[in-house]
């Protein structure tokens, strides 16, 4: 693992800042150009550091990647109140919450997806864990759908995955801005609302 900058004593704050700056630059570079397509040298020069300075914190490029993995995505998916009904408004809120989280964590998610498609085992495990958390949170919201809840959660996940990946493929680096556009959010939320057949109790006025 990377050396602990805390061991630098009085310089520890500065060490933390440098480490964080290297990680931020590496996240963007790996997400955009891929792990293989990025050199430690290019990360160092973008940070205004020597290669040796980067290697001090992260002995290999792989250590950098693993440090990024351990940071994880930020932000929480909204939790459900136990007795809450499943309404069209709720479905729209859940779609938009997902879109906001995907904008906030764009570099992380893009990096994970790229590495998953290169069959990286760590990235695949991280993606599975993060989808399991998403599924679990959705299950709480969809509990009111009764026995069809699991199928409707799958439907929600497939549709949102399709709309958001399609948008990412079309917009590339512009994704975070595109996914926060209110017109896009309205369009996707509407499509998912129309897709999901709500249980009778929830669709009553």
């Amino acid at each position: 693992m990377a050396r602990d900058p805390g061991s630098l004593g009085s310089e520890s704050t500065r060490g933390d800042e440098t480490r964080a700056r290297i990680l931020a630059v590496a996240m963007d570079a790996f997400a955009r150009d891929g792990f293989d397509g990025t050199s430690v040298r290019s990360i160092a020069s973008r940070c205004g550091l020597s290669d040796a300075a980067v290697f001090y914190y992260f002995p290999t490029k792989r250590h950098l990647l693993e440090a990024l993995w351990s940071e994880g995505p930020s932000g929480e998916f909204p939790r459900a109140e136990p007795a809450a009904q499943l309404t069209p408004e709720r479905i729209a809120d859940l779609v938009i919450a997902t879109m906001r989280l995907s904008a906030r964590n764009f570099s992380y998610l893009r990096l994970v997806a790229r590495e998953v498609l290169r069959s990286d085992a760590t990235a695949t495990a991280l993606r599975n864990a993060s989808r399991a958390r998403w599924r679990q949170a959705l299950h709480e919201h969809f509990a009111a759908a009764g026995p069809r809840a699991a199928a409707l959660v799958d439907l929600f996940m497939a549709a949102v995955t399709g709309y958001l990946l399609r948008l990412e493929i079309e917009t590339g680096d512009g994704y975070p801005e595109a996914v926060l556009d209110p017109v896009t959010q309205e369009r996707v939320a509407r499509a998912v609302q129309d897709l999901i057949p709500l249980p009778a109790a929830a669709s009553a006025p």
Binding site: N128, R131, G162, L195
Partner: peptide, 23 residues
């Protein structure tokens, strides 16, 4: 047109998710 839009995105999403989950 709206139905075709829903079908395209939902089934693409299912397929893309499957190739990322199961290689």
């Amino acid at each position: 047109e709206a139905a075709a839009d829903r079908l395209f995105h939902t089934l693409s999403g299912m397929l893309w998710d499957a190739v990322m989950t199961y290689g």
